[in-house]
Every structure is written in structure tokens, then in C-alpha cells.
Write a protein that binds this DNA or RNA. Structure first.
Lengths: 183, 183
DNA sequence: ACCTGAACACCGTTCAAGT
DNA sequence: ACCTGAACACCGTTCAAGT
């Protein structure tokens, strides 16, 4: 089905993920795919949401600190994205995923934000900025396609950098709770 | 020259920006373009850096508050990106710009961060997160290409949302100065 | 339900040759 | 320096037809 698409990704990268190549690998005519998937972008959307199934959502018994839960959740998302670097540019172009897994994770984030005391009107912007930051950071951590030059930072440095900036963000969101401002 | 490329962008969107279409609009054979530009991605990079020339850099006489300067600079960048929505996906795919204008703006950001008291080791991650956040927010504010459905937020709401999350980020970065942590 | 043959309307890029 | 003709090796998608 669409396992062939994943195979192509790990090999040739996202540029090699073409309808005709998928059909070729299945030993089938290119147009035969349209019996199983509506279009190329529909196939991509399925791939994107599928990956999100591997994000570890924090245990609900971990009632201690919702901010720590957010940190853990976004870090797991970041690592999941980095595990499939060829998919990351597609998240950017498709503006994230909108499948069932994406919705589920969004609900978890919202619940954590509410438990952290974020004002209801700020929950949506806060969720948005966390997602933007995570996908964006993953994109910049991923090597540019045209230039497979050595990445300037090691993956460990990248993780530390992500944890640092994520901490800044969470600090800023939390600070807005302590001394809320009108706007 | 590459003004034709911009014309195609404002009309057909980034999907219409193809070598052959540019050549068509210039009344010229497709391969004639390769006398003026090395490749398609080189053309894109030139377009991206060109746009950054319109970002308003804060006046240096504005010595008051470097954090406010950062806010102004990133907001101007955000608005510049929104003014060319078809270019935004390209910034994502190309991981930002790397031309002379991009370098100049990066230097300004670094100077402001240093003046704000950010530790030298944190300047690069801080610059990175500001850029990631700005481009990422612009990307999510831009309507997805496949779905020209009504944007869920008005442009004014989007600007407010951006200002809010940018403020969180700057708060977090500033807070790290007041009580620095080892990591 | 799932596949094929054939076609449509495209791509980016290169090479040799012209002026 | 800048252009053309011709070609190479591709794309996504549709339509009609087969089983």
C-alpha cells in the first residue's frame, strides 16, 4: 500500500517520492495508485499523520507539572520528526498534519496548557507557537536538500539547542500567567 | 531579468514559478535562462534574499531598549514575509536565505542580543529560535496552497497572535539572563 | 474493486550550434 | 555574451476499457 512510499523516502529522500516511483516499486502502472489514494498530496498527508503516531504522550498519572509535560511532549515530537528527516519539509509545506493523530496530540497540548493556568483565549496561540517552534526547529536541524554538506551542529548540540529555546518559550508562556497583560 | 519571476509569483503563486513559464513570459526559449542563472534553486535564492531588503532595521539611535528593537525587527520581518505569501514556503524549503541581506539582518540581531545581555554562547541559539519562530509563524499564517479555504484568523488577529508569541519568546530569553542556568 | 494502455500537458537541464 | 533547436529523462493525472 503506502509502505512502499516510506521505503522510497528512506532511500531517495523526499524528492524521490513520486507517484511513478511508487508504482514502479510495486511493479504496477502509475495510474493504478489512484485506486488506493486520491492524489499525491493525499498520500503525503497520510504519511505525515502516520508518523505522529509514534510521538510519546506523557502519562496522565504524571499530574505533577503540566509545563514539564509540555516539555516532554514537544521534545518527543521533535525527536520523532528528526527520525524522519525527509518528511520534515513536507510538514512545512502542508502546514503540519491534520489527521486523527495530529488532532489527538493537539488535544493533549490544549489540556496541558489549561492545567498550567493559561488563559482560555491564549490556549490557541500558545499551542500554535509550540507547534511552529517544534516543526520549524526540526526543519532547520534537517540538512538542506541541495547541500548535503556537513551539518554545522551535531545532533546532540541540536537537541540541547532545542531544549534551550523550548525552555525559553515555556518560560515566556508561564510568565504571562504570573503577571498577565491586557492584549 | 528575474523581475519576470516576481510577476509570475504574484499571479500564479509559487507553483507557477517554473523555468519554462519564466522563459515563456520573456518570449524566449527555456534554456536561454541558463545564461543568466545557474539553476532554478539559485533563482529562488536570489528572490528570497531580494525580499529581505525591505525589512526595516531599527534605527541605531534607538539605544533605549534592545529587546524592543528585536521585537520591532522581527515584526518587520514577519510583515515583509506576509506581503509575499507565495515566497514563504520557499523560505521553509530553503531553510531561510543566505544572501547578503540575510547576513546583514543576522548581524543586527546578534548585536541586539548581545546588547540585551544574552550570554555569548546563547546568541546563536537565540537568533536561530527567533528566525525559526518568525518564518514558521508566517508559514502557518499563509493559507495552505491546496486549500484556498477561508483563513480561520483575520490578518489583524494573526499579527496580534504573532506579537503575543514573540513577546513570550523575548520574555523567556530575557528571563534566562536574569537567572542564568547551566546547560 | 483493481488494474492496464494510451494519452495530455507539462517539468529541469544539457549539448551542440549559431550570432 | 546571449540565444535557439532538439533532445533526454522525467512528472501528476485522466479517460476508456478490461477482469
Amino acid at each position: 500500500v503506502l509502505a512502499a512510499a516510506r521505503r522510497l523516502l528512506v532511500e531517495g529522500g523526499s524528492r524521490a517520492l513520486t507517484m511513478r516511483a511508487v508504482a514502479r516499486q510495486l511493479g504496477v502502472a502509475p495510474n493504478a495508485l489512484y485506486s488506493h489514494v486520491a492524489s499525491r498530496t493525499a498520500l503525503l498527508d497520510e504519511l505525515l499523520d502516520e508518523l505522529l503516531a509514534e510521538v510519546k504522550t506523557p502519562t496522565t498519572s504524571d499530574t505533577d507539572d503540566p509545563v514539564a509535560g509540555l516539555h516532554a511532549l514537544m521534545s518527543s515530537t521533535y525527536e520523532t520528526l528528526l527520525a524522519a528527516p525527509d518528511l520534515v519539509p513536507l510538514y512545512l509545506v502542508r502546514h503540519g498534519a491534520r489527521g486523527p493523530n495530529a488532532i489527538r496530540l493537539g488535544d493533549v497540548v490544549d489540556a496541558l496548557l489549561e492545567r498550567a493556568g493559561v488563559a482560555p483565549a491564549s490556549v490557541i496561540p500558545a499551542r500554535r507557537v509550540l507547534i511552529v517552534h517544534t516543526i520549524g526547529a526540526a526543519a532547520f536541524a534537517t540538512a538542506a536538500e541541495g547541500e548535503p554538506a556537513a551539518p554545522p551542529l551535531s545532533t546532540k548540540q541540536l537537541q540541547e539547542s532545542f531544549a534551550l529555546s523550548l525552555g525559553w518559550l515555556l518560560t515566556g508562556i508561564s510568565a504571562a500567567i504570573d503577571r498577565p497583560r491586557d492584549s
